[in-house]
């Protein structure tokens, strides 16, 4: 008990002594781990470069202004490609994610012991591997270009969409499904009358949300050769064309802001 009686007046502490000790120990371990990690990083860091960085940053910023606006002509096509990669990739992901999600949700899966673990494995492996790594593999497999980007975004998004979707399916109101079952509906009828109407808003929200994220991710796929504006960014950086770099960054900023605005509008309209 955190309260104890000493000499007639009751002492109150927030925690028991043992708990307080555990909290302190937790903090101590946490700080120790942090300090240890920090030391290892700092060993691998050339601090001269770090102290020099502000000067470098000013230098770089000076070389970046003004952005080379004429370069915009070259950029329209990559922007279009970037948007396509995100949109088509999201579409592919959704098409695959829906059945995976139904297999992964406890209340709709055909088999808890065989299908569900498989579906969960698909979700985890798709989620743990960054789209850039997917792109890296696909570029080696099917060659550089937009197709690799689209598939990479698709593969990466399956896990994300399926995870959120199956959580939504598991959270549905079961009494509504029971009511449909009570009418003597078949399994597919239960699905379309009891479950689908309930998850529709979540589904739409997830799709738009992922599309928004994918716009951001597809801007960098070009770094490994998978198409989009990242290609221009990569080549501009490697040729030290800083005025082009700054323009590309502005374009990315604008694209992301616009896509965020669009997705917010759509989500608002749906919900």
């Amino acid at each position: 008990m955190p309260t104890q009686k000493i000499a007639g007046s009751r002492i109150w502490h927030r925690r028991t002594t043992a708990k307080q000790f555990a909290v302190w120990l937790g903090w101590l371990t946490g700080i120790a781990i942090f300090v240890y990690c920090w030391r290892l990083i700092s060993e691998k860091t050339i601090w001269f470069f770090v102290t020099d960085a502000p000067k470098q940053a000013v230098d770089m910023a000076e070389r970046m202004v003004p952005p080379k606006w004429s370069y915009m002509e070259v950029l329209w096509a990559p922007i279009w490609d970037t948007i396509n990669i995100a949109t088509l990739g999201t579409m592919i992901a959704i098409v695959i994610a829906v059945p995976v999600a139904f297999c992964a949700a406890r209340n709709t899966t055909p088999s808890v012991h065989f299908v569900r673990p498989a579906a969960l494995f698909i979700i985890v492996s798709s989620r743990s591997i960054n789209s850039l790594i997917w792109a890296l593999m696909l570029v080696t497999l099917i060659g550089p270009g937009i197709l690799a980007g689209v598939i990479a975004i698709g593969l990466r998004s399956i896990g994300f969409c399926a995870k959120l979707l199956y959580e939504a399916i598991e959270e549905i109101d079961h009494s509504q499904v029971e009511a449909v079952i009570a009418t003597g509906a078949t399994r597919s009828q239960q699905l379309s009358f009891g479950i689908v109407p309930q998850i529709m808003p979540a589904f739409a929200g997830i799709s738009v949300f992922r599309w928004d994220i994918n716009i951001r991710e597809s801007t960098v796929l070009g770094l490994v050769g998978a198409g989009g504006i990242g290609l221009q960014l990569d080549s501009s950086i490697s040729t030290l064309a800083w005025t082009q770099v700054s323009l590309i960054l502005l374009v990315i900023l604008a694209t992301v802001i616009v896509s965020e605005w669009v997705s917010a509008k759509i989500r608002h309209a749906i919900i």
Binding site: I41, K44, T45, F49, V50, A53, M60
Partner: peptide, 13 residues
């Protein structure tokens, strides 16, 4: 990361 590598050099920092 690209920019921080340019500014601070290669490595985990």
């Amino acid at each position: 990361a690209i920019f921080f590598v340019k500014l601070f050099g290669f490595g985990p920092f």
